[in-house]
Simulated scan of single mutants.
Amino acid sequence: MRIRATVAAVSGALALSALAVPAAQASDDSSYRAQAARVLAHAGSPGADRTAFNAAAAPELGVSFSNFKVAKAVKVGTTAPVSVTATYTLTHGADVDITSEDFATGPFLYRGSSFDSAENVLFGAYPATCTATSATTANCKGAIEIEPGDLWNANAGTWSGGGLALDYSTEGEKVQGGLGKILVQRLSKLTADATPEPVKKGKTITVTGKLSRANWETNKYAGYSTQPVKLQFRKANSSTYTTVKTIKTNSTGNLSTTVTASVDGYFRYSFAGTSTTPAVNAAGDYVDVR
C-alpha cells in the first residue's frame, strides 16, 4: 500500500517503526503527518502484521465523523501535486478537548471496498481547522494532498472518504471510514488537427488527433486505447458544436477520420470520460473552405 506522508510514500512496518513521535511534539505539523501516517498505515494496510501494533493498542477517542463533503472528482496529472478540500462534522465526548494542542483531526481518502482492506491511503500535510458549534460538535475543514508519485494507475476510480482524530497526550485515536465518495482520475489530454488548410469546397478534410492520459507509474502521458470519441464541428459564425460522427481511438490513442468540406468552421474531438479518466474537449481547429 502507498500512503501519503511527508514527501515520500510510507507503508506498513516502516510507518510504525520510523514515524512514531513523542507527545511533546504534538503541536508541530510534521508530527501530525507522522502520526497520521502511522495510524492510517496500520489501520488500512491489507494483510499487514498488526501484532506489535495491536499489543499496545491505543485507546479509542470518543469522537465520530459525519456530514463528510468532498468534490465529486479530482484530476491528477503526472507531476504537479493536487489538493482537495473536505469538510465534516466532528462530534466528541465532553472529555475530548478539541482546542488542546495535543488534539488533531483531519480527513483522508482510501481506495478499496473497505478501509480495513484499503490498497492506498491519502491525507493532508496539516491537520484540519475546526470551529465549535456546540459543547460537543464542531465543523471541520481540511485538505488532502495528492501527488502522482503516491498513486498507481490501478488506483484510478472511486475512492472513499474518512476522518481521523488524534490525542497526543493519551495516544488516543479514532479512524472512521465510509464517509463519502470521490473519483480520483488520471488527467486527460485531447488534440485535433484538420487538414488541409485552406481547402476547396467538396474536397476531403482529414481530422487527426490523440487522446492521452496521465500514467502515474512513468510520470508521462500515454495514449488511451479503444475509447469512443466524437468528432464535432461548429460553423464560423456559431458558438455551438454539433457531433458529426463517433470513432474510436486506436491501440495508441490516436484518432483519424475524414469529412467533406462544406463551410468555414472549427473541428474538434470530444471525449465523454470514464470513471478513471475525466471528460475533455480538444481545442477547435479552424478550416477555411474556399
Rank of each mutant, 00 (worst) to 15 (best):
R4P: 00
A5M: 06
A5G: 07
T6M: 03
V7F: 07
A8V: 11
A9C: 07
V10R: 10
V10D: 01
S11T: 14
S11Q: 10
A13W: 12
L14A: 05
L19R: 12
V21I: 14
V21A: 11
A23P: 09
A24H: 11
A24M: 10
Q25R: 14
A26W: 08
A26E: 02
D28I: 14
D29Q: 14
S30W: 14
S31K: 12
S31R: 13
R33G: 04
A34T: 10
A34V: 09
Q35I: 10
A36R: 04
A37V: 12
A37E: 02
V39R: 13
A41F: 07
A43N: 06
G44R: 11
G44V: 09
G44N: 10
S45N: 11
A48R: 14
D49F: 10
T51W: 07
A52Y: 11
A52Q: 08
A52F: 08
A56M: 11
A57L: 11
A57D: 02
A58D: 10
P59D: 02
P59L: 11
E60P: 05
G62M: 02
G62N: 12
S66F: 00
S66D: 03
S66G: 07
F68T: 05
F68K: 04
F68A: 03
K69Y: 01
A71E: 02
K72N: 08
A73C: 01
V74S: 00
V76S: 00
V76Q: 00
V76N: 00
V76M: 00
T79K: 13
T79E: 04
A80C: 01
A80S: 08
